[in-house]
Amino acid sequence: MPGFLGRRPLFHLGRPSQQAHAAHFDRRRRQRCGARSAAGAGASSKEGPFNVVVTGSSKGIGLALAREFVRAGDSVLICSRNASQVAAATEDLQRLAASSALAGPTQVIAGAPCNVANPAEVAALADFAHDRLGTVDIWINNAGSNAYKYSTLTELDPADLVNIVETNLLGVMLGCREAIRVMRTQATGGHIMNMDGAGADGGATPRFAAYGATKRGLAQLGKSLQAELKMQGINNVGIHNLSPGMVTTELLMSGTDTSTAKFFVNCLAESPETVAEYLVPRVRRVPAESRSLGGISSQYIRYLTKAKAYTQILMRLVAGQRKNRWVAEDQ
């Protein structure tokens, strides 16, 4: 099993600075002479390394997730609407891979500009992933938007509404469709992770009504797709949910202007890195753990569970913990 052995960290231990160039060059060379066969030969086992696609991953939680996967030795394809941000993030990940202890010679880091709401671009992204990574083991539909503002529906610009609905709901639908198309033909199958968000559990989301509605729709979509895959006898593709909780990204911080919002952000929010550190190992266990009779059981991986949230609020009220943690509160 040369491919399998080839993924072991043979010569990346130590001397990261000198290795960076060599590894980069190595990757470039392999890409030129057909990474498909190279990576395909090392078809992923259930324990990894995995080939991972993360959408909307040039910043925020998407980039943090990508970094965690890279650190774990996985091949990662990132994408975002903004080509220059993708290029910068890809370089950042390549640097990280070069300095990472677990990075193997078959590790591929790639990036591509992609608007997830555009069917042709998503299809091209899936094909690109298939070509570059060989197989796609994990596809994370992370791209999400709240137009970076919190306001009532009436104050929101119609163009923002279009953007929110198309990115959050249509984008995930198209992503699922293309990911299933690629994964169903793979012997090892694959796993799709959809990011939930406020509103997914049905709770009201005033001041970001459109965002909440799309996330509620996503939670329902996962159930339907899982049922359809079962009906069609596609038992090598799983649909799962990731719940990052409150993450201190632009998306959240744009709405932290009232004292209540500040209180909850300080109480409950975590940095993207902390959340990714928690989520990625659990995501990487999904291929091994979610096998069940006649298919794949759906998993819901939550960072901020209810128990955790209530404990943190209680500790804040009782012991004043986490006050002014992210934003300064008045008083």
């Binding site: 989301t205 005033p206 909440g212 799309t214 509620r216």
Partner: peptide
């Protein structure tokens, strides 16, 4: 599902 959710927020 999204439309039904909307009522609560609005």
């Amino acid at each position: 599902a999204g439309i039904a959710h909307l009522m609560g927020s609005l």
